[in-house]
Simulated assay, not measured.
Amino acid sequence: MMGVEGELLFYPTIGEVFKAVLSGEVQKGIVPILNSGEGPVNPTMMALIACGALVQIEEEFVLPINHVLVTRPGYTLEDVQVVYSHPQALGQCRRYLNGNLPNTRTVESNSTVAAVPDMLGSSVPAAAIAPQSVLKLYEGEIVPIKIGIQDNSHNETRFVMIGKVSGVLPGVTGQDITYLSFGFDDEDQPCLLQRALSCFSSLNINLRRVESRPDPMGCWKDIFILEAEGHREDPVMQAALASLRYVASTVTIWGSCLRATHKRIK
């Protein structure tokens, strides 16, 4: 994460990144939001819902994900009894683990980077699934068993940059995406979700993704998360959002930015 002087800081969990941004400890935070194989990153989704209108999404970008299986010097694949990593990484390497370490226990870590100290602190021979960058961070303490163990060679993750709400957003480019969420007080009304989504379809606005997550403030209620193509300052998008406010009980707009498909980092 970016500190006040432009330094890069690392936090062990996604939740702590959001806390650091809201407290002003850092100016911006970068968190994963969607993986090409494992889908939405739930801690990010739930943190966005919990923060509501206090945070804004200012940028999105896609990065290739290259997982490395690392261990202590002197250990081999046959020695490993437990593997540490983030749940998303464990899922993205499921085929490799099943084929090469079928009887090995897996333990969830707060992040792929945090998996390395978890592994180093293990009382039994262990390995960690981590990004290739840890080989420099922990030089001399770890060695790679195998590089590129992800099941999908085209494994990619979309990240978003978040900041405190400032009212200043990237300008309209014509290739934008708007992140928002909405909920209902009474979900038992017929066709309520259809009416909400028609606010966009009736204006020919494409929805890139539609997700739902449990509403942490309501029993058996949901929060719906949309990625709508267009900028919140576009007149057509403004009309759609105005219509949505008549249908939904709560609407939160997290921001608009250039779509990552037009600025992918290789």
Results as ranks from 00 to 15, higher is better:
Val107Asn: 00
Glu156Ile: 11
Gly140Asn: 09
Leu135Ala: 08
Ala126Leu: 07
Thr112Asn: 15
Ala128Gln: 06
Pro125Phe: 12
Ile145Arg: 05
Asn152Glu: 11
Gly121Thr: 01
Phe159Ser: 03
Ala128Lys: 07
Pro170Ala: 03
Arg105Phe: 02
Pro144Lys: 07
Gln132Ala: 15
Asn152Phe: 12
Lys146Ile: 13
Ile129Asp: 05
Ser109Met: 03
Tyr138Lys: 10
Asp151Gly: 07
Met119Asn: 04
Ile177Thr: 08
Gln132Tyr: 13
Leu137Val: 13
Thr106Asn: 04
Ser111Ala: 12
Thr112Ile: 12
Gly121Pro: 00
Ile129Gly: 10
Ala126Gly: 07
Arg158Cys: 09
Glu141Leu: 13
Ser153Leu: 10
Val107Pro: 00
Ala127Lys: 03
Pro131His: 09
Arg105Ile: 01
His154Thr: 09
Gly140Lys: 08
Gly163Thr: 14
Ala127Pro: 08
Ser123Ile: 09
Pro131Ala: 08
Leu169Pro: 00
Gln132Ser: 13
Pro131Ile: 06
Ser153Val: 12
His154Met: 11
Leu137Trp: 11
Val165Lys: 04
Ser109Asn: 02
Gln150Met: 05
Lys164Glu: 10
Ala127Ser: 13
Leu101Ala: 15
Gly140Pro: 04
Leu169Met: 05
Glu156Met: 08
Ser153Gln: 13
Ile142Phe: 01
Tyr138Gly: 02
Lys164Met: 14
Gln132Leu: 15
Val116His: 03
Val134Tyr: 10
Arg105Pro: 01
Gln175Leu: 07
Gln132His: 10
Gly140Val: 02
Gln150Pro: 01
Thr112Pro: 04
Arg94Trp: 05
Pro125Trp: 11
Ile147Val: 15
Gln175Asp: 10
Val113Asp: 05
Pro117Ala: 03
Tyr138Trp: 14
Pro117Val: 02
Leu135Asp: 04
Val107His: 00
Pro117Met: 04
Val165Tyr: 03
Asn100Lys: 15
Leu169Glu: 06
Pro117Tyr: 08
Glu108Lys: 00
Pro102Ile: 06
Gln175Pro: 00
Leu97Val: 08
Ile145Val: 14
Ser166Arg: 12
Ile142Leu: 02
Thr173Asp: 10
Glu139Tyr: 09
Ile147Gln: 13
Ile147Phe: 13
Thr157Arg: 05
Thr112Tyr: 09
Ala126Pro: 11
Ser123Thr: 15
Thr104Trp: 04
Ala126Val: 09
Val168Gly: 00
Gly148Ser: 10
Glu156Thr: 13
Ser133Ile: 07
His154Ile: 01
Gly174Asp: 02
Tyr138Gln: 06
Lys146Ala: 14
Ser122Asp: 06
Thr157Glu: 12
Val172Pro: 03
Ala128Asp: 04
Asn100Gln: 15
Ile145Thr: 07
Ala128Asn: 06
Pro131Lys: 08
Val134Met: 11
Gln150Glu: 14
Ala128Val: 04
Ile162Pro: 08
Glu141Phe: 03
Glu141Thr: 01
Thr112Asp: 15
Asn103Ser: 14
Phe159Asp: 01
Thr104Arg: 02
Gly163Lys: 14
Asn103Cys: 12
Lys146Asn: 08
Ile142Pro: 00
